[in-house]
Computed example of a mutant assay.
Amino acid sequence: MPWCEYLIMCFAHDRIQNDEWKKIRFISYHNLLGSPNIDTKKLPSLNKFVNGTDAKIKKASQEIKEQFSKEFEEYNRLIKNKK
């Protein structure tokens, strides 16, 4: 099996696992709603509970953006020199 096919299979496996975990979180959220000893006002919304860490969006700092732009310019320069 070539490396590219292996990578595609790995990405597909990760996606399937994430979908299965979302289903499990969905079921557990509704179980929490039905339990009598849990205060439903303190529970997060369904989207926050189901998505979990997927909902967190991190922004890159200015330093990282500058470093990326420098490396990208160097990459473009090297590509142009090869042609």
Rank of each mutant, 00 (worst) to 15 (best):
K48N: 14
E20N: 10
D54K: 13
M9W: 01
P2N: 10
K23T: 06
Q17P: 00
I38N: 03
A55H: 00
T40D: 09
L43W: 00
I24Y: 09
R25T: 06
K59Q: 15
W3P: 03
Y6T: 11
N18G: 04
L43A: 06
S28T: 12
C4D: 13
F68I: 08
E71Y: 06
W21D: 03
Q67T: 06
F68Y: 14
K48F: 00
S28I: 01
N51L: 13
V50I: 15
E73S: 12
K65P: 03
I27N: 07
V50C: 10
F49N: 04
S35N: 02
S28V: 02
W3Q: 07
K58P: 06
E73K: 10
D14Q: 10
M9Q: 13
L43V: 05
Y29T: 07
E71D: 12
S61A: 15
K22Y: 03
D54L: 10
Q17E: 09
D19Y: 01
F49D: 01
Y75S: 03
E66R: 05
Q62I: 06
G34Q: 04
I24M: 13
L78C: 13
R77L: 10
S45G: 15
S61F: 08
E73I: 01
Q67S: 11
N37L: 02
Y6Q: 13
E71P: 00
Q17H: 08
K22D: 08
K22H: 13
D19L: 06
L33C: 10
A60S: 15
N37I: 02
N18C: 04
I8Y: 13
T40N: 15
D19T: 01
W21G: 01
N76V: 02
D19F: 00
K23I: 09
Q67L: 09
Y75K: 03
S45A: 05
W3M: 04
K70Q: 15
E71A: 14
Y6K: 09
D14N: 11
G34C: 07
D19M: 05
H30G: 05
